[in-house]
């Protein structure tokens, strides 16, 4: 009887999980069908596999450009976030004075501010900087990277800060006595120890920045600068009725995510779990 329950549980869990992935099945099968075939039966397998709609969607979405932009923006943002926030968090955690406490408190408190509260004044302020200081913040990928760093600062500093607190200070003291500078101590002794939390910080930020729609939609106006969520949005504005083409387009946007998931699955699940418990 016990064994029967176990098999039943196995079976139910698998069904539930498959149910969760069923939308992916629906987009895959329909991305190969022509319009008539699609409306005959949306759940059936396609009669033949032609990549015609993929090629068309790729062209209409400017997919390769969007992929390049998304990769450039995400990778650069995350790298700079890791470098700057780990340095800041370490200094704040190891310098025990009022100023450090205040700075850390401000980082934590601002985590509660929704993006919608900042978006309009942020855009105003960024265009002021663009116009008066001639630093191109608006409508450039680098300007967007700058803003992504600002928005990710709080959570990243918070995660690093908690981790640094758990490292015994004696290690650093030994290195300092040996004559290493603060810079040397941090990069040679501390940063390697931070590796587990660095993985968490990277994964959380990659997911957020890769999927972000609203901030890029406000800052990037040039067609050639669009990220994947942006080009998906404009693509749907133009081709909603042609669902087979739309399905191929959606499939294209999911492929990079699936590749990322397959390559880094263990780190992602561990990273998310640890990031939340902190």
């Amino acid at each position: 009887m016990k064994k029967f329950y176990k098999i039943l549980k196995e079976f139910l869990l698998l069904i539930a999980a498959l149910f969760f992935l069923s939308p992916v099945y629906i987009i895959i099968v329909n991305s190969f069908k022509d319009r008539q075939e699609l409306y005959e039966n949306v759940l059936a397998l396609p009669k033949e596999f032609s990549f015609q709609y993929y090629i068309e969607a790729m062209d209409k979405m400017n997919f390769m450009t969007a992929l390049g932009n998304s990769l450039y923006i995400t990778i650069l943002s995350v790298l700079i976030i890791v470098i700057l926030s780990s340095m800041t968090a370490w200094m704040l955690a190891r310098t025990d004075n009022k100023l450090s406490k205040i700075i850390f408190m401000v980082f934590i408190a601002t985590m509660l501010i929704p993006f919608q509260t900042l978006m309009m004044p942020l855009m105003q302020f960024m265009s002021t900087i663009t116009n008066s200081l001639h630093i191109p913040m608006i409508n450039t990928r680098e300007g967007l990277i700058f803003m992504h760093i600002g928005f990710s600062a709080s959570i990243s500093v918070f995660l690093y800060h908690g981790f640094v607190k758990s490292i015994p200070i004696t290690l650093e003291e030994a290195a300092t006595i040996d004559g290493a500078s603060k810079f040397g101590v941090f990069w040679r002794v501390i940063f390697p120890i931070l590796k587990p939390i660095t993985v968490t910080v990277m994964i959380l930020n990659v997911i957020n920045i890769w999927n972000d729609y609203l901030l890029p939609s406000l800052t990037l106006t040039d067609k050639g600068l669009r990220t994947i969520p942006l080009s998906t949005f404009y693509f749907f504005g133009e081709f909603t009725i042609q669902w087979n083409l739309a399905m191929a387009g959606l499939m294209l946007t999911i492929i990079p995510v699936v590749i990322f998931y397959i390559l880094a699955q263990k780190h992602i699940i561990k990273g998310i779990g640890e990031g939340a418990v902190k």
Binding site: N211, Y213, P229, F233, I254, F260, Y261, I268
Partner: peptide, 8 residues
């Protein structure tokens, strides 16, 4: 699904 993102 969490990785795919809300918009898509």
């Amino acid at each position: 699904p969490y990785l795919i993102g809300g918009l898509i």
